[in-house]
Write a protein that binds this DNA or RNA. Structure first.
Lengths: 211, 211
DNA sequence: GTCTATAAAGAGATAGAC
DNA sequence: GTCTATCTCTTTATAGAC
């Protein structure tokens, strides 16, 4: 069953190339990473890459498309119904666990988006924007239902939330001395800060937010 | 007076190169930007760059060092004394206005830090880390003084705050339809969200936070 | 301080055998 | 599907005149 998927994908080499490229592109940058380095890391020779991908940029496009696809898929997996605040909390949890599960993939997609050009870039930007628009809808609903303040426009709250969450992509692998935080701990932290702030005047669950 | 500075700096060419490089590196990335493109944008020929900088990476190092220096300088300009919450609010305002004043410089420093290698990279990372440590001290003081909740460790609050603020570097130039927000509006937004959260249970000033 | 000319190395990508 | 061999172009950086 899983074997069938691998066979369809050509023995998994294509997937191995994508995953390896995601890692190298995050560590060294897209432009700095040569196709030869990538081939070495995969265990094949340079030209063999071109059997699986037409160009180097096509490879990056594949990474970005996969990132958008997984984030959107996580959104779709949300159980329907329920109040907006609950959906928003689930959304934060899903986002954190999704990107932690494949940090290289999502970090590369986010950071190297600018290395895409033309139509490919437009496609990915559109995908990310749609994702952000869906988050904004949930936030606006929460405001309508009275569980979020109406003092700040939904747009601004969305920017704040995504700033809070996306920072994780950038520093998480580098800047944490000792044991890295688990997805649950990060979820608790960001949920707590976003909903109740650092003063925590209305904080509901002080316990589980600790790292 | 300002003339003397320019003369000391060699007619300002070095500064022009730095500012132009910061812009190009942010728009197109460090590795994607060629020294010829940079020279063209400055209005000189490629090899002339090497009179002012030893290598291309030396140029990037100059940008990163300047970024750290300005952020640290802004911190030093804080009026001494007062309670920690006030210092923290001033800090947010200073950070936002500093990076908005030179978006290209600070965005390039932050994003292209990984393109530096060896000792140069270590120097910049150390500078940024010291800056973050100083923010954490202020946050810890605010917790001691009782103006911030002790439910979350100072370290986690610092990560949350810097996530919130640094996101501005990345999306501000790109993702804002219509009039871009002013530094004052961004300051009001981030201050409000960080201290009081999206529920805004204890929000003190609901008015000025609107964009 | 900036130029022209050019070196020296490395990049992405192709051709064609196996 | 992967290989060896190689093309072609671009890159950073240097040499030396002005």
């Amino acid at each position: 069953v899983a074997r069938r998927d691998e066979e369809q994908a050509g023995g998994g080499t294509r997937e191995l190339i994508l995953a390896t490229a995601a890692r190298l592109f995050r560590e060294r940058g897209y432009a700095q990473t040569t196709t030869r380095e990538l081939a070495d890391a995969v265990g094949i020779r340079g030209p063999s890459l071109y059997y699986h991908f037409e160009t180097k940029q096509d490879l990056l496009f594949g990474i970005c498309r996969e990132s958008v696809s997984r984030l959107t898929g996580a959104f779709d997996s949300l159980p329907p119904g329920g109040d907006a605040e609950t959906r928003l909390r689930s959304l934060i949890r899903l986002y954190v666990s999704t990107i932690i599960a494949d940090r290289d993939l999502h970090a590369t997609a986010y950071i190297e988006l600018r290395s895409l050009t033309g139509e490919r870039r437009a496609t990915i930007v559109e995908g990310f924007d749609r994702y952000l628009a869906r988050i904004e809808e949930v936030i606006a609903s929460a405001q309508s239902e009275g569980s979020l303040s109406r003092d700040l426009p939904a747009r601004e709250l969305t920017v704040s939330l995504t700033n809070l969450l996306m920072g994780t992509l950038l520093w998480l692998p580098h800047r944490w001395s000792g044991r890295p935080p688990t997805p649950e701990e990060l979820t608790a932290l960001f949920t707590s800060v976003f909903f109740d702030g650092a003063k925590g005047a209305g904080r509901s669950e002080p316990g589980p937010a600790r790292l």
